[in-house]
């Protein structure tokens, strides 16, 4: 309704607006607190990361601190196999997680968008893991996966698998185990966003398609999916960045192990700075991670022609 009023009304003549005598400083005063906080606690740290990336900087070895030029970067690309391993694992992790979350989230959103008995409670239950934290997710799945009293024990009671299996400490199962745990929490994010966007598809389109005899699958491909396109592109991008950056779950669930098998690049950076105190090298790794993220995001938005048809 609000929108209808705004659309119907012709743009107000500028003179009217000036009459309210707004002090010219007001907008600056209003954004002031937000701008100061972001300058101090985002912009400044980012700049200092760039600065440290050119330094040898390790509080535990102060005698070696000083300007290092591009030494850190040379070391990353030529002497550090862990960097390449973690980069490959990050890509695999983000790709698998975002792909599966989108697939299941889309399917769930389409299902709970139907009219059926118990829809409200069904939605609430499907969405509930969305609010669960990474650490709590880890706690829950540690309970499920532990070798003595986890699900494997009860499966073994039924004759499936063997006793004493721990999916989190076996290099052949740890990836799937972590993926399932993160999926449990991540699917509702897509389901919620896509369901929200489904509310705005005009029902007239479906009715028209129905009159023309289009099947439900055809309607999905030609009406629903094009409508969802921008939302899907934006949410997959945000989610990919988030899955790349977020270390809560892997840090607490596997600690990056066993044998570094589940270490993402940010987890490697956190370990380098927190455990090894090698701040200079960690900063250089961070800079590389920034650049990779930025590059991938731009390529993704270009390739997917985000928002293209509206203009």
């Amino acid at each position: 309704m609000a929108q209808a009023a705004a659309v119907a009304k012709p743009p107000a003549p500028p003179r009217r607006r000036r009459a309210s005598a707004t002090p010219r400083r007001l907008p600056y005063l209003l954004i002031g607190p937000a701008a100061l906080l972001m300058l101090g606690f985002i912009a400044y740290p980012v700049i200092s990361v760039f600065y440290y990336s050119l330094q040898e900087y390790n509080p535990t070895k102060p005698w070696r601190n000083g300007f290092a030029g591009f030494d850190n970067f040379v070391k990353i690309f030529t002497e550090d196999p862990v960097f390449w391993d973690t980069l490959v694992f990050s890509a695999k992790w983000v790709f698998v997680e975002v792909g599966l979350q989108l697939l299941f989230g889309l399917a769930l959103a389409l299902i709970v968008n139907q009219t059926f008995v118990g829809r409200g409670i069904g939605r609430a239950m499907v969405f509930s893991p969305w609010a669960v934290s990474g650490v709590l997710t880890s706690a829950i799945w540690v309970l499920l996966y532990n070798s003595q009293t986890g699900v494997t024990r009860y499966l073994a009671d039924m004759g499936i698998g063997s006793y004493g299996t721990s999916w989190l400490s076996d290099t052949s199962t740890v990836f799937s185990a972590a993926v399932v745990a993160d999926l449990w929490r991540g699917v509702p994010f897509f389901a919620i966003l896509i369901l929200a966007d489904l509310q705005s598809v005009s029902k007239d389109l479906y009715e028209a398609a129905e009159v023309d005899g289009a099947s439900r699958i055809k309607q999905f491909w030609h009406i629903t999916l094009p409508h969802l396109k921008d939302a899907i592109i934006l949410s997959t991008l945000l989610r990919a960045v988030w899955e790349f950056n977020n270390v809560d779950l892997l840090y607490t669930l596997t600690g990056g192990g066993p044998a570094g098998e589940t270490t993402t690049l940010p987890l490697y950076i956190a370990n380098t700075s927190v455990d090894a105190h090698d701040f200079g090298y960690a900063s250089a790794l961070t800079t590389v991670a920034f650049v990779i993220l930025l590059f991938c995001s731009i390529v993704y938005l270009r390739l997917s022609k985000f928002g293209g048809e509206n203009k």
Partner: peptide
């Protein structure tokens, strides 16, 4: 206002800045 576009851009860009990677400078601040 003058810096509106810059401010908007900063808001969007900050979405890509991971808090986890700024732990060290934040700790020092």
């Amino acid at each position: 206002f003058k810096i509106k576009r810059v401010f908007m851009l900063a808001l969007l860009c900050s979405q890509f800045v991971p808090g986890a990677l700024l732990l060290v400078p934040l700790f020092e601040i």
